[in-house]
Design a binder for these strands. Structure first.
Length: 409
RNA sequence: GCGCCUGUCGUCAAGUGGUCAAGACCUCGGAUUGUGGUUCCGAUAUGCAUGGGUUCGAAUCCCAUCAGGCGCCCCA
């Protein structure tokens, strides 16, 4: 009979993988809590419209990567990212009335219908942070610090921070218009993707990898536009302020004028953190400011900035961590006494098991040596005398002590 | 959606047209009816993703389908 297999682009996170996931989750709680952030958990599906309006209906994510389904005449979608959901909750729960900043962090599965490859799955996990209510560059700096320090807490090095400013909608519009103007004569020579992007989101033209397109974009008059500081004075000041903070704080970063990001809601600060040790999907963190999203989704005008990290990508950088051994394994040929003793030990906070199949003594001891640090031997003699024998399986030392004593001193 | 590569035991694999499809790890049983991790012995794929085809003969060659991986695109 044909067996049912895990779906394309999804993976089991197996018991052996868990230590690394627990590590990532514990560090997230630990680090983000230090910044005053609180965890939030929002539903895995939301109204489709939330993503269409939030993420932007010109984006690939919304156009072709969403898992959308109908139920009771509602269009629902498995969340492809979590900023929209957190913003929805922020608005719905009136969090704009809380004292700013409101700092939230989350972790959980996201869903995008894409062709899987290294570092890209259809169900994947993100851990992220959103900070609401602060328009000053201090928030930008703090959010970047949260990302950097989380990665540091995981022990990850060899990461580089890339930074850019997209300006505000007004100055970006000016830039888009200029860019389209200079590119217009070459439109017919550009690749189909770029021709589509020319209309939909000209900013995303810039990091096309097709050689012909790059030739066009390398032309002096076009480079002049790309390299020009198009952003307005306010935006520019904001960006300069952020860079000054980062410089003083010793955060290494580089400016990447081509860094645009694929979600429509970003403005001003955008950043990515990349690893040199991943395949072509090398971004472990992406984020930026989204000052108009809360308002666009029907909330009070609230500035915000955040980031998300791909946990599978982090996990692959972290490598394997070993599963912990049990503290003890009860070796006995008396199942009833064995289960009683095991429960006693568990009640004392000791992780332990006993042999449910009542195998021969030698087999049980062999098993103990594989899964536990100590064998707790409870044989006929011990039962008769009200004692147990504790054997350290590493050093082979053993001692017989009274039942109910402190076994592991 | 497009390109390239790959499918042999739970896992890693050898085999690349000619007897029974190596080997290793894991698992299980035994040597060993109260002292393990070492060692030794034994068990484990009538089948090589699936379906066709070529051939006296196919895991091996061809076609299709399915699945997986990688890259483009996009993104975490």
């Amino acid at each position: 009979m044909a067996t049912i297999k895990v779906q394309k682009g999804t993976k089991d996170i197996l018991p052996n993988d868990m230590p690394i996931w627990h590590f990532m989750e514990e560090k997230a709680l630990e680090v983000f809590t230090k910044y005053g952030a609180k965890e939030i958990r929002t539903p895995i599906f939301e109204a489709t419209e939330l993503f269409a309006r939030g993420v932007g209906d010109t984006t690939d994510i919304v156009n072709k990567e969403m898992y959308t389904f109908e139920k009771s005449e509602r269009s629902l979608t498995l969340r492809p990212e979590n900023t929209a959901g957190v913003v929805r909750s922020f608005i719905e729960n009136g969090m704009h009335r809380l004292s700013a900043p409101v700092k939230l962090w989350y972790k959980g599965p996201m869903f995008r219908y894409e062709r899987p490859q290294a570092g890209r799955q259809r169900q994947f996990h993100q851990v992220g942070v959103e900070v609401f209510g602060i328009k000053q560059a201090t928030a930008d700096a703090e959010v970047i610090l949260m990302a950097v320090n989380y990665l540091k807490a995981l022990g990850l090095n060899d990461l580089s921070v890339e930074l850019n400013s997209l300006g505000c909608p007004e100055c970006r519009e000016v830039f888009k218009t200029k860019l389209k103007e200079v590119l217009k004569p070459y439109l017919s020579q550009m690749c189909p993707d770029c021709q589509a992007r020319y209309e939909k989101n000209p900013l995303r033209l810039l990091d096309c990898k097709v050689p012909e397109c790059n030739e066009i974009y390398a032309k002096p008059e076009i480079q002049a536009v790309i390299q020009s500081d198009f952003i307005c004075e306010d935006c520019s000041n904001h960006f300069e302020e952020l860079k000054a903070y980062l410089n003083e704080l010793g955060v290494n970063y580089s400016i990447n004028k081509l860094l645009v990001r694929g979600l429509d809601y970003y403005n001003r600060t955008v950043f990515e953190i990349k690893s040199n040790n991943l395949g072509s999907q090398n971004a472990v963190c992406g984020g930026g400011r989204y000052d108009s999203l809360v308002k666009n989704l029907g909330g009070e005008d609230t500035p915000a900035i955040g980031f998300a990290m791909g946990m599978e990508r982090l996990a692959s950088l972290l490598g394997a961590k070993e599963c912990k051994l049990l503290d003890g394994y009860v070796v006995s040929n008396n199942p009833l006494e064995a289960i009683k003793l095991t429960e006693e030990l568990r009640a004392q906070g000791v992780t332990c098991e006993f042999d449910l199949t009542n195998k021969k003594f030698v087999k049980q001891l062999e098993k103990a040596s594989k899964v536990a640090k100590y064998a707790i031997i409870l044989g006929e003699d011990e039962i008769a005398q009200g004692k147990v024998t504790i054997k350290n399986l590493e050093t082979s030392e053993q001692k017989t002590v009274a039942r109910n004593s402190n076994y592991f001193v």
